[in-house]
Structures are given as C-alpha cells and as structure tokens.
C-alpha cells in the first residue's frame, strides 16, 4: 500500500488537525516568559498552514478542492470544531470554502526581493480562521476518537483516496485516559492506497532541544514521549525523502513525531506533513 493515489478534484484527500486548547497552552514557548504563548504560536502556525494549503490548491481559475480539512480543538470546553467566523461549527470543510471564508484578513508587512534583486517592503493579507484558546484539561483521548469518527465517514465516501493525515498538536498528557488504543484504532483505518497517517507534535515549555522524527523509542526521555512515539505512524517513503532533504537522518522506522518542538520545528513539521505528493 504505497501512498501513490492521485490527489485531484475527483479524488480529494483529507487533513484533520487536533489542537490542544488546555490551560497550559497559555504558557510561553520555551522557558522565557513574556514571549508568545504556545496557544498563540500554534494559532499562528495553523492559520499560516491553512493559508499555504489554500495557496497550494489555487490555480488560475480559483481554488481546486484537492483537500477537505477539519480543525478540532480540545480543552476545558470539550472537543469540537475550532474554526471561527462563518465556518464556526463546521466539521470537515472543502479547501475552497476555507479560502473564501476567513474570519478576517489582517494586513501584515514583509520584506521581499523584487524582480531586480532589491529588497522592498510589501503589504500582504494574512487570513485568520483560528484563534488562540487555552483553558482546562487535555481530553486527547476524546479528540482522537472524534478524528476517527470524521475519518471513518470520509473513507466511506472516498475508499480509494490518498490516505487522510491527522496531526495532533499538544503540550501535555491526556487527562481523559490513555489515548493509545484510540490512536491505534485511527492508525489502522485505511483506504485502498494505505493506512491513515497519525502524526504527533509535542510542544514544549522548556528549552530542551527538540527531538525530531525519532526512529527508536529507547532514546526518548520519558514515558509520555514513548507513548506519543507509539501512537505516531512511520513516515511513508515520499515523506522520508522530504525529511532527509531537511538534513535530518531517517530510517524505515522513522515516525512522524516531534518531542519538545519549538516554533521553528512546529512550522517545519506542518509543512512536511501537509506537502502534497501527487497533486494533479
């Protein structure tokens, strides 16, 4: 089962993002106080990711629905869809609907090189679909079960699709029971092209170096890291190649997992995890 199915408007694929919105997400990224909170950093990364996905699917005539996307938040207010604005409450949304319905467009500035090689300041529109939230516990188990139910429905309608990719972003331990069995149930679902991919991104309040894409749990520092490793899929070949191109050593056992992720590794992980392999 080789992860080679075409991703097209007639054969779309799906992404599910599970976002930890528990109380500890209001701590800063890294140990230094006063910086962006983890919730703010993740919200920025998810908005940027959605923007990049929309742009990847944009062609001359508009946005092609290569993907359907679900963003699920989990925290003190329970588990549910996390879009804001006109998409609020929607479970699985076509990428064209996402592109055409940001909650708002922020004006931001960036410095770019123009066609003559000179640096110029450019204003651009930064769309916002997802706001930072942090409150209460970490119902990761229920969140994974929610993803499973969305993916089961998706696979019933798209049995031959490029397998759905689920990315779980969290800073802590599950507070509603061991999520391993739920994760296993999700990872063993499949389309005719391969098993569903579940990747875990553990974000850090410490300044320890991130452990990116490990291939052996023996070198992981604690039980929580080992648990997340065990509930992360091994990378399919095309993703292993991408990770290797980033200068990270890989093997056939390399898993889609980052422990103690900083903001840079969050953005890199989301980029690799959502880069299309076979878009037509």
């Amino acid at each position: 089962m080789p992860y080679i199915a075409e991703i097209s408007r007639t054969h779309p694929s799906c992404f599910v993002f599970l976002i930890d919105q528990s109380g500890s997400m209001q701590d800063p990224f890294g140990s230094v106080s006063g910086l962006k909170t983890k919730a703010m950093g993740v919200a920025d990364a998810i908005n940027r990711l959605l923007q990049n996905l929309v742009i990847k699917c944009t062609k001359s005539e508009g946005i092609r629905d290569y993907y359907h996307v679900s963003v699920i938040g989990y925290g003190g207010k329970g588990v549910g869809p996390a879009f804001t604005g006109s998409l609020k409450g929607k479970e699985l949304v076509k990428i064209s609907e996402i592109g055409n319905n940001p909650a708002r467009l922020e004006e931001r500035k960036r410095t770019v090189e123009d066609s003559r090689g000179e640096m110029v300041e450019q204003t651009f529109k930064f769309p916002i679909w997802f706001e930072p939230t942090s409150y209460g516990g970490t119902p990761m188990n229920a969140a994974i079960q929610k993803a499973t139910s969305n993916v089961v429905n998706w696979l019933a309608d798209h049995p031959d699709c490029f397998p759905p990719i689920v990315i779980n972003i969290s800073d802590g331990e599950s507070t509603d029971g061991d999520p391993f069995q739920s994760a296993y149930d999700l990872m063993t679902l499949s389309s005719s092209d391969g098993e569903v991919l579940l990747f875990n991104l553990h974000i850090s309040s410490s300044n320890h170096r991130p452990i990116e894409y490990p291939d052996n749990p023996d070198y992981l520092p604690d039980q929580q890291a080992k648990l997340l490793f065990s509930m992360s899929s091994t990378l399919p070949e095309y993703m292993r190649t991408m990770v290797e191109k980033e200068g990270i050593p890989v093997s056939y056992n390399t898993r889609g997992f980052v422990f103690n992720a900083d903001l840079v590794s969050v953005i890199r992980f989301l980029d690799i995890g959502t880069r299309p392999s076979n878009m037509r």
């Binding site: 923007q51 929309v54 944009t58 769309p127």
Partner: peptide
C-alpha cells in the same frame, strides 16, 4: 484576483 490567487501569482 482574490487574496489567495494574488498570493499564488506572487510566487
């Protein structure tokens, strides 16, 4: 062009 098409064209 809408925002996404403009962004894409700028690439």
């Amino acid at each position: 062009l809408p925002w996404y098409a403009r962004e894409k064209a700028e690439q």
